[in-house]
Design a protein around this nucleic acid. Structure first.
Lengths: 183, 183
DNA sequence: GCATCGGTAGAGCGATCACTCTCCCTCTGT
DNA sequence: ACAGAGGGAGAGTGATCGCTCTACCGATGC
């Protein structure tokens, strides 16, 4: 069986994603995870640790979500955006879990580190994909653009609707890639 | 003199923007606004009302911030993004006040209404600017893209740096406009 | 056989927080 | 001159919350 810490982390991720970081006290988290308070605190010794645990879990979940997909061509580069659209479709419309956490704990170094780490790795993924498709060229500005579109799409989906946001992001991504001769 | 309610609202906007919505109790807000608790509650009868007051104030502030600028050509369309860059330069690096509020109060209808309202008006501004520059054409998808870039730029500035984010947003915006023959 | 580890259940503590209330002061209009 | 509105100061209250602690249970390993 999966170890209990992981099982709790999965529930924490789900709970925070659904109900946010503010409304939910430790008792509510305990109930969602269906463990005793003692056990919860054994594996996550503070509420802050629970938040970090949930973010680390989400980091792994989303990383796995972006694996696979087309191996070559422009679709290899666009895949994370396509996949984000599918993620937003199956998830609650609550925006990015990491940015929500950052909104709530702007002065917490430990939490901030997990977030920055996750986002930096995501940004690097666009660099890697571009290098795979167009080796030898410096396309850092394109990678930054794709990352920006990823972040913008997550927020715009809540405000303008998923359809509109997905189309807009892919439209802009294709236009930017085309400007560099990638089609 | 400006009326006291406005003066308090300005301080609330500043306080929430600097320190976030979570860390600051009503007593801290009172101290920042330099009024008595009684007076604060007279004008904003609950903490929720203070938050809404701060958001409404920010709505007016940012709307004024985007006024002016080039009257024609592509720069008229790009102006909000340029101006956002200047905003982020002079502001603390704490992301979008509205989305931070939404992260913290995902189930509060009154707060959500103010946020949706603000963002919808911002989105419409891109439609208006495009219509001004290219009258008679349906460029809704371009407007959606520009709005998405605006939202993405706000977040990316915190994660990748203001310079990188500004360049990426303007780069993508120009590429998308060029794809429609607007240069 | 029994110690140990990791689990459940839940009462209780100390701190914080949103909000109220009382008392007093200072303008301003008539 | 004086009533009344609107301001200041700050103690008090009830509720919530993060966290700890005590007491007990069941499986596993020597």
């Amino acid at each position: 069986m999966t170890d209990i810490r992981t099982r709790i982390a999965v529930e924490l991720e789900r709970s925070f994603a659904e109900a946010g970081f503010a409304d939910q006290g430790v008792e509510a988290l305990r109930a969602e995870a269906d463990v005793s308070l003692r056990t919860l605190y054994r594996h996550f010794p503070s509420r802050e640790a629970m938040i970090i645990g949930a973010l680390e879990q989400r980091d792994r979940t989303y990383d796995a979500w972006l694996s696979g997909g087309p191996e070559d061509g422009i679709d290899h580069v666009l895949y994370p955006l396509v996949r984000l659209g599918e993620w937003l479709h199956q998830a609650a419309n609550t925006g990015c879990l990491f940015l929500n956490a950052l909104a709530q704990y702007p002065d917490n170094a430990a939490i901030e580190a997990v977030i920055k780490d996750h986002k930096a790795r995501l940004a690097r993924q666009f660099n890697r994909r571009l290098a795979h498709v167009a080796p030898g060229r410096n396309l850092d500005h394109l990678a930054a653009t794709l990352f920006l579109l990823h972040e913008g799409m997550t927020q715009a989906a809540r405000l303008q609707g998923l359809e509109t946001a997905t189309e807009a992001a892919l439209y802009a991504a294709r236009a930017a890639l085309a400007a560099e001769g990638l089609t």
